[in-house]
Simulated scan of single mutants.
Amino acid sequence: MEKDRLERLTDDDFQKAEEFVNIMKLLYTSTLCVSSERSRTCGQIFPILTKLEVHFKLAEEDTPFTSAVKEKVWGDLKKQYLYEDIQNFLQETTLMDPRFKGRLVCDFIQILFSHR
């Protein structure tokens, strides 16, 4: 029975699997970045969220499958940081994080405060 099911996988199924992996690769990498036990990661959350927002933005060339995945994932992810207190905390920790010292240009600061 399992063999029959595998034989029925189509090229479209494989294409969707490849699209899914490509979409989720950045989310997986982001998860690894903030899962470190040895370094503080709170200051990385806001910059990562900013990158993920751009990554999950719908594009004209997206297939219906890719669009659906992007909408679902970003729709769930953006709900995690809705509260203003949390957003302010994440922005402040990013500004104080030494890893971003010297990399904070006007554009990045403008992004930080445009989300308030």
Score class of each variant (00 low, 15 high):
9 L>T: 07
4 D>K: 10
44 Q>L: 15
21 V>A: 11
12 D>M: 11
32 L>F: 03
44 Q>E: 00
20 F>I: 00
7 E>Q: 13
45 I>D: 05
3 K>I: 14
23 I>W: 01
15 Q>T: 12
24 M>A: 08
16 K>M: 12
15 Q>P: 03
15 Q>S: 13
35 S>D: 10
29 T>Q: 10
2 E>F: 12
41 T>Y: 05
7 E>R: 13
4 D>Q: 13
19 E>T: 02
17 A>W: 07
27 L>G: 04
36 S>Y: 01
6 L>R: 13
51 K>T: 08
13 D>C: 14
12 D>N: 11
4 D>E: 14
28 Y>W: 04
42 C>L: 15
20 F>M: 15
35 S>M: 00
41 T>A: 02
27 L>D: 03
43 G>S: 09
20 F>L: 15
38 R>G: 13
15 Q>D: 12
18 E>L: 07
37 E>F: 04
46 F>T: 01
10 T>P: 09
33 C>H: 02
16 K>Q: 13
27 L>C: 05
28 Y>G: 01
46 F>M: 09
22 N>I: 01
3 K>H: 08
52 L>R: 04
26 L>V: 09
12 D>C: 03
29 T>D: 12
20 F>V: 00
45 I>Q: 07
10 T>M: 03
28 Y>I: 06
45 I>H: 02
12 D>W: 04
13 D>A: 11
37 E>W: 05
44 Q>K: 14
12 D>H: 10
6 L>W: 14
43 G>Y: 06
38 R>W: 10
19 E>Q: 14
32 L>C: 05
31 T>A: 01
46 F>I: 06
52 L>D: 02
42 C>M: 13
24 M>Q: 10
35 S>K: 02
30 S>W: 00
23 I>Q: 03
13 D>Y: 09
34 V>H: 03
7 E>A: 15
7 E>T: 02
10 T>K: 06
40 R>L: 11
16 K>G: 03
38 R>C: 08
36 S>P: 02
28 Y>H: 08
32 L>I: 10
35 S>Q: 06
11 D>Q: 14
17 A>I: 10
48 I>S: 02
28 Y>K: 09
5 R>K: 12
18 E>K: 11
39 S>H: 14
11 D>K: 15
44 Q>G: 07
52 L>S: 03
24 M>Y: 04
48 I>E: 00
28 Y>E: 11
4 D>M: 09
47 P>R: 05
34 V>N: 00
4 D>R: 11
51 K>I: 06
34 V>C: 07
50 T>S: 12
6 L>H: 08
50 T>F: 06
35 S>A: 07
10 T>I: 02
17 A>N: 13
10 T>E: 01
15 Q>W: 08
9 L>H: 08
25 K>S: 07
36 S>A: 14
29 T>W: 02
2 E>W: 12
23 I>V: 15
27 L>Q: 05
36 S>L: 07
28 Y>T: 05
29 T>H: 05
4 D>H: 07
31 T>N: 12
10 T>N: 04
12 D>P: 01
13 D>I: 03
46 F>N: 00
20 F>G: 01
52 L>P: 05
5 R>I: 09
4 D>Y: 09
11 D>F: 10
42 C>Y: 05
45 I>A: 09
9 L>S: 05
6 L>P: 00
51 K>C: 14
45 I>L: 15
48 I>Q: 01
19 E>S: 08
44 Q>A: 14
38 R>A: 13
53 E>G: 08
49 L>P: 03
45 I>K: 01
36 S>D: 10
16 K>A: 01
2 E>G: 11
37 E>L: 11
41 T>L: 00
4 D>T: 09
48 I>C: 01
